[in-house]
């Protein structure tokens, strides 16, 4: 285990949605520059864990620490700013604005941050070849394939230069070939940008792209045992 402080850490996280207990004391830590897979069956609470770590949800109890700061204690406005500038997000589907062409979808975070239009579009343009999207800049989301759409989402997630990319089942709607492409690109480009990645998935082949994996079961995290121990 590295002795350095983790980039992002969640300790003792609990979260209820009404009567459903989604998280019952989950722990997780993410080092700088690593790709972490969060695995588990559906309903295990892995997505909820991701949302708590990213500051989208506030846990009922426990702490989330990013870069030494308590995210769960922050005001909504501060957390929103964090998500906008320092975190990047890739969801399973439906995140692209249907009426904006691909270039503007990618440039959207920059535009929202107040960058000039020309600058933002130029920055987005630079991302197209990196993700194999050449020539698709002016297509609408409804006119490209699922795999291409997810790559656009990745470009948008990375365009602001985030420290951490949160990916929630990024290949869930894709077939295995497209899924491989997307994961390969996500991991390689993130490493190029020195961004850490947390991927939530239930597929082992997707988790295999990560450096390390954590399992979530029934709202708790299960740390993997050391390999080679006798049953």
């Amino acid at each position: 285990m590295s002795e350095a402080t983790p980039l992002l850490a969640g300790r003792g996280l609990h979260k209820n949605f009404g009567l459903t207990q989604a998280l019952r004391g989950a722990d997780l830590s993410l080092e700088a520059g690593e790709v972490l897979a969060v695995m588990g069956p559906s309903g295990s609470g892995k997505s909820t864990l991701l949302h708590c770590l990213a500051g989208i949800l506030t846990p009922d109890s426990g702490e989330v620490i990013f870069n030494g700061q308590r995210i769960d204690r922050m005001l909504d406005g501060q957390r929103t700013r964090l998500r906008r500038t320092v975190f990047g997000f890739v969801f399973q589907f439906g995140q692209l604005v249907p009426e904006l062409p691909v270039l503007e979808n990618i440039a959207l975070p920059l535009l929202l941050a107040g960058k000039g239009r020309r600058v933002a579009i130029a920055a987005a343009q630079a991302w197209l070849p990196r993700l194999g999207l050449e020539g698709l800049g002016h297509r609408l989301p409804g006119e490209i394939s699922g795999g291409q759409g997810q790559r656009v989402a990745i470009a948008r997630a990375l365009v602001t230069g985030p420290r951490i990319v949160f990916a929630d089942e990024p290949t869930g709607s894709l077939d295995s070939v497209a899924g491989d492409q997307v994961m390969e690109l996500l991991v390689s480009v993130a490493k190029e940008e020195h961004a850490s990645v947390i991927v939530v998935t239930h597929e082992p082949r997707v988790a295999a792209y990560a450096d390390r994996q954590v399992t979530v079961r029934d709202g708790r995290t299960v740390q993997p045992a050391v390999v080679g121990g006798a049953p």
Binding site: T80, L82, R83, G88, F91, V97
Partner: peptide, 18 residues
């Protein structure tokens, strides 16, 4: 009609005011 993209944009850091 655009509930999901808007919700996910908010999760990605879009302010409600925007």
């Amino acid at each position: 009609e655009r509930r999901r993209p808007f919700a996910l944009l908010r999760a990605s850091g879009l302010r409600l005011g925007e």
